[in-house]
Write a protein that binds this DNA or RNA. Structure first.
Length: 271
DNA sequence: AACGCGCCCTGTCCGC
DNA sequence: TGCGGACAGGGCGCGT
C-alpha cells in the first residue's frame, strides 16, 4: 500500500505526536507480524522512550535508543495514534501502551507488514543494502544513468527495485514515467542522458507533490490520525485505464509487468 | 549475478 | 443474491 510519500507522511505525524513519549507496554495480537521472537520483541520495547522517528526507504524507524523499532507496512499496514479509550479497529496486530493517555496501534488487514526490533548496528548493515533515497542530493541524473546502465530490465520494474532506488512503488513508478514521457517497457540501460534527467526530475517532483498532499489513498492508506491522503485526485495515469490522457486525450492503457499493473499513455510515452 | 515468478493474506469488485 | 476469478499500494525466497 504505502510508498515513500505515504510512509513519510506517517513518519512526520508520528514524529510530532510521540517523540519523547515512553512505551509502557506492548501486546502482540498477530504474532506472524513480528520478525523474530515475539516475547523478546514485547519485552524489548517495554519502558523505552521514543527518541525520534525517521524513514528509510518504505520503513518507519522508531528510535528507542540502542535499538530501532522498524515497521514495514506491506500493503495494508496502518500505524495509528489514539486515545486509550478510543474504539479499536478490526485486524489489530499490535498495541503499544504509552505512559500517557494514548496508544500506538498497528493494524494490518492482509498482514504483509512486519514489525521488528533491531539494534542500530544491525540496522546499519541492512540500510547499506538499500538503494539511494530519491529525494537526497545523491540522486543525480549522472548517478541514475550509471546505475541504470547496469540493468536490462524494463525501466518501470527497475524503478521499483529497492536495492537501486528506494521508496518508489507501483503507483509512483507509473506516474513518474508518465511525467518523464518514458515508455515503461524501455530497458533501463537504454535510457538516454536526457531521459535520465527527465526521470530524475519527474520522480522527485511526483514524490514531493504527493507528500504535500499527504499521500495517495486508493482504499486502505491512512495517516497516523486515520485520515486519507489527497493525492489520489492528482494521479494522471494510475488506475485510469481507458480514460483520456490529461495531455493528449489518448486512452490510458494498462499492461502487466512483473505481475503488477502498469498504466501509461501510448501516445505521450512512445517506445 | 541478475532476473522472473510464485507466494504470503484478506477483502472487494466484476461478470455471469 | 450467489459464486468464481481477478486484482490490490510490498517484499521475500526460490529456481534458472
Amino acid at each position: 500500500m504505502p510508498e515513500l510519500p505515504e510512509v513519510e507522511t506517517i513518519v512526520r505525524d508520528l514524529r510530532g505526536l510521540v517523540t519523547g513519549a515512553t512505551i509502557a507496554d506492548a501486546e502482540v495480537l498477530k504474532p506472524d507480524l513480528i520478525e523474530g521472537e515475539v516475547t523478546i520483541f514485547a519485552e524489548g520495547v517495554r519502558t523505552r522512550r521514543i527518541a525520534g522517528v525517521d524513514r528509510r526507504a518504505k520503513n518507519i524507524l522508531i528510535d528507542l535508543g540502542d535499538d530501532l523499532l522498524v515497521i514495514n507496512l506491506g500493503m495494508t499496514g496502518r500505524v495509528l495514534v489514539v486515545e486509550k479509550d478510543a474504539q479499536e479497529p478490526t485486524h489489530l496486530g499490535a498495541r503499544f501502551h504509552l505512559t500517557d493517555h494514548r496508544r500506538i496501534l498497528y493494524q494490518d488487514v492482509r498482514r504483509f507488514g512486519r514489525l521488528e526490533l533491531v539494534s542500530k548496528a544491525s540496522w546499519s548493515k541492512r540500510d547499506a543494502a538499500l538503494g539511494v533515497e530519491p529525494l537526497s542530493d545523491d540522486f543525480t541524473p549522472e548517478f541514475l544513468k550509471q546505475l541504470a546502465a547496469k540493468s536490462r530490465v524494463a525501466v518501470k520494474t527497475w524503478l521499483m527495485d529497492q536495492a537501486r532506488v528506494v521508496g518508489i512503488g507501483n503507483i509512483y513508478a507509473s506516474e513518474a514515467l508518465f511525467r518523464a514521457r518514458i515508455n515503461p517497457k524501455r530497458p533501463a540501460n537504454r535510457l538516454t542522458r536526457a531521459e535520465a534527467e527527465r526521470l530524475r526530475d519527474a520522480v522527485r517532483e511526483v514524490l514531493t507533490e504527493a507528500i504535500d498532499f499527504r499521500g495517495t489513498t486508493l482504499l486502505d492508506y491512512r495517516d497516523a490520525a486515520g485520515q486519507k491522503g489527497a493525492f489520489s485526485k492528482r494521479l494522471r495515469v494510475y488506475d485510469r485505464c481507458g480514460e483520456p490522457c490529461v495531455n493528449c486525450g489518448t486512452p490510458i492503457e494498462r499492461i502487466v509487468q512483473g505481475g503488477r499493473s502498469t498504466f501509461f499513455c501510448p501516445s505521450c510515452q512512445k517506445r
